[in-house]
Structure formats: structure tokens, C-alpha cells
Design a protein around this nucleic acid. Sequence first.
DNA 1: GCCGTTTTCGGCCCGACTGTTTTCAGTCG
Length: 580
Amino acid sequence: MKNREIAELFERIADALEVKGETGFKVVAYRKGARILQDMAEDVEAVAREGRLGSVPGIGEGLAKKIREYLETGKMAKFAEAMKGLPESLLGLLEIQGLGGKTVHLMHEKLGVKDIDGLKRAIADGSLAGLPGMGDKKVDNLRRALEARERTAERVSICEAAVIADEVIAYLRKAPGVGRVSAAGSLRRMKETVGDIDILACGKDGSKIIRHFTRHPGAVRVLAEGGTKGSVVIRTGDAERQVDLRVVAEREYGAALLYFTGSKAHNIKLRGLAKERGLKISEYGVFKGDKRLASREEEDCYRVLGMPWIPPEMREDRGEIELALENRLPRLLEAADIKGDLHVHTRASDGDLSLGEVAGLARKMGYSYIAICDHSRSVTYARGLEVERLAAEIEEIEAFNRTLRGFRVLKGSEVDILADGSLDFPDKLLGRLDFVVAAIHSGFKKNVTERMLKALANPHVRTIAHPTGRLISRRGGYEVDLDRVIDGAARHGKALELNAYFDRLDLDELNLKKAKSKGVRISIGTDTHFADGLAMMRFGVGIARRAWLEKGDVLNTLGADELVGRTAIRKERGKRARRP
DNA sequence: GCCGTTTTCGGCCCGACTGTTTTCAGTCG
């Protein structure tokens, strides 16, 4: 799939044009094209082959031609042309806060700055300050931006962002005269990683609330402290994270929340739509001339634009506005729909908790079941269970279940898919289980696709855990042809997992969309190993919502009887089929 | 470069902030 490659090229063309001073709408068009390609669940090659490039909104004649050229020749003449005379390293300067195309162009032209080191030298020897429009403060800000860049990660995991935001929001609720408080930005949209942490509050006296905010005990630096906006750097562990707060009047809360939640592309589409109708939309409301039509609630703003409220997770300009206008938005999966967790470890393998402890926590979450899926014998580093230990665990769970009412522990396993695609336990043992998750933990480059397909064909397997194996902060994942795995799951009527652990979130939103389009159900499991792990479900649900999954797409919205009953029925069918 | 039951040319989201200016450009979200 070349979607990302081509998106990257368009992105760099946009950067190069910007640095060459060709700002404006051409640059925007390339950036938009890049985003569309990245968001596209379909393989751009297939779309091009079927002659459908022209019908993708945002891809016109020009971009379509360049895409075809790249697919056919592996090259894009426009890219070479745009990069002519520009060192590649120059484009990296655009990532520095406060540096845009104009300034980078000027620095390159007048001072011969080519990269970050060149910029540092130009700051140090004073030549930068000599540029027109460049004063002491700008130079100083750039110096600080360079320092900050070395200290803070570009994006943080949604989990880390949520923990910080939850804490700061709780703290802000104690501010004098504060009204509603909410996370905004990509955190509210539940993106798998988050840039800055954005928080919105309302209240009569913005300055007082912001002063309270900048006095947060974890704040190591205050970047801004005004009447409507505050910005601090908060230290968590060894990292520093920027948290921005905006305070608006209560009557503007909805419009401001809509605006600060984004995404930018969603906002732009909405504003264009408003304009077509003679309206104007800003963070202060939806206006007709000077008349404010809506601003208090997000719902009001959407309503005067002729559509129902759009869930934040959908706000990416991926067709949600068009659907909303036709009143055809899907009813997304909700946290309350989840009846159990389908991937949980205990102390028997590498978890921290006993069976009783994890079941107790699950009950507190309001679940009616969990599936205990400890590792199998080959995963020695995780104390994988031998046959006898799994048999013992099965008996332990059965005995435990007899003591319970209104809750059930499902007997499961995260059984390893071995190098030859066979499973780490014999079928007879797997047949005693309620829920079998198959997974790869070794041989990431060895026939992964074939092994997964073979596992999916086993009648006892219900789902494949973390099907790409990526770890967001650490590694890309297995060498796997996921399209074939999705097709295999569809063929065998099996599910695929959405692993809700924050560093996995695997399948990701694009692959979830693909799976849904093929009719493949998704099992959401937290893969929990410790007490806080079950709560990761919120991220799984968030990503599922970003992929537009509905209740019916997700396996663990079923009750335990239905879930296990289906297994039993399938096994029965399998047996009958095998008997001539 | 994209787009169009107003348009095939002339539009293309909106406002705030900052720092540099003496009326505005650049950048950001």
C-alpha cells in the first residue's frame, strides 16, 4: 500500500512550496491531498487502477495525475522540481514553533541556513537578528523553541495525555468561579497520540481561573498567563508536557468547545458550509451578520448548520459532515455497550493480579464477564502456562464461577501461533475453553500472514490478538499482509482484536474500518496485566468510535451466554462437518 | 491545486497573538 509514501511526497511538496514563498492555496491543496491519502482505508493503487481517483473529494486532475505517475514509475517529477535548490534538511526547520515558510526562506536566501545546526549558528553569531522583521524577542523565542524541542516528545500517548488532563481538570474544578471544564483537541477526539493537551473552561473571571491554573503544583514553567489563555509546562516523571487552558464565557462554551476540539479540517469544512449559507462560524458562535444564532452548546451550533451533533471522534472531515447533513450518522459504540473484557491476564502467567482480584475489578467496571487469557507454554518469558497448568486454571475458574452470581469468568487462553502456524496447545485442550485468542509473540518476520491464516482456520480460535504487533512508542510491527488476514477472518467468520492497551491500540482505526467493511467483528480486550489495566477500555472504545464502529460490530457487546453459545454452536457445526 | 444546480474563473475559514511595525506580516491552532 503506497498511500503513506505518496502522502509524504505531497506533504514535502507543500513544505517546499511554502519555503519557496509560494504560500496560499496550492500549498493547502497538497496538504489536503496528503491527509486524504493517509486517511484512506482503501489502497490508493486499487482506487487508481479502477479509475476512481477523480471521484475522491480533494483529489483533482493535477494530484490524480501525479499519483498515477508515481504508481507507474516510482517517481514524481513535481517533487523533484519542488525540491530543486532546496536541501532536504531545510524542510525540518518548519517543525520548529514560530518558524514558517517565509522566515525559513529568508534564512536560507540571506544567511545560507540549511538545517537546525545552521539556525543555531545564525542565532549564536547574531546574523539572524540582522534579518528584516527579526528582533530580539523573535530570536529569543526561537532559541527557546529549539531548547523545548530537545526536551519534549513530539506527541504523547493518549493514556499519558488523559492522565494529565484528568488531574488538571480535577484541579481546575477548584478554581474560583469556574463553570464547565472539558478536555478539547485531539485528546477529546481520542487520537492514539496527542500533541499539546488542550483544556477548555468557562467562568466569569478568566484571569482568576488562569492564575489558579498557572499555580498548578506540577507546573515547572509558565509560558503564558493572560485573561483568556494560559499555558504551562507540567513535569510528569522525567518528561515535560505542555498544557494549554482557554477560558471563555459560559454562553460561548459550546462554540469554543467545537472550535478547540477540531479537527482543523472538520472546522474548515464546517466554516465553508456556513459561508455558503450566508453564516459565519467562529469560536464565539454561529452568526448571521451580527446576530448570534448559536453558541451555548455544541448541539446548537450544529443544529443551525442543519445537522445533528457529531461525536468528537468522528470530526476528521472523513465524510462525517456529509452524513450528518443527510441525518445518516452511525450510532457509534458506547462505553456502556461493553459487557466484558476479552483479553485479561492473571498471576498464573505474567499478570499482577489473582483471578479473584481481577474479577472483582471487572465487576466494579460494571461488566458481566471477563475472559482470562493467560499466555501459553512457548512464551516462557511471560511464564506461559503448561498444559497441566492451563487444565488447573480451567478447574479453578469453574470452581470460582460456582461462587458467583451475575458475573462469569470465561475460560480462555492467549495461545501462541507457532513458527509453522500450529497452535501452542492441542485442540482437545482448546476445546474446553470458552474464548480462545491466538497471537504471535515470536518470529515477527517469519510467514506471519500464513501463520495467522492457519490459526484463523482452527475452529477453536475466536480472534487474533494485536494483529499487527506494533508498539506505538517502540516498533512498527510484524511483516504481515493485513488485508489477507482480514479476508481470512471474514471467510472463517472470526473476529480480530482491538487491543486497548495504550501502546498497542492495534488494530488501528484505518484497519478497523477495513475490517468492518469486510464484515469482520472486533473483539476489544485490554490485555491487562495490572490493576489499572482494565480502565484502558476507554481508549479501545475511543479508537473504535474513531473507526465508526457500532455496537453490532463489536463482539463484547454480546452477553456471556450469547458469546459463548455462539462458540458452542460453531464447534458443534465444526464437528458435524468433519463427520462424513 | 480544487471546485462549481449561482460560477469553468475566481473564489478558497477565522480570529488571536506576537513582534515588528507606524499599519501589518507571519505564525498558530
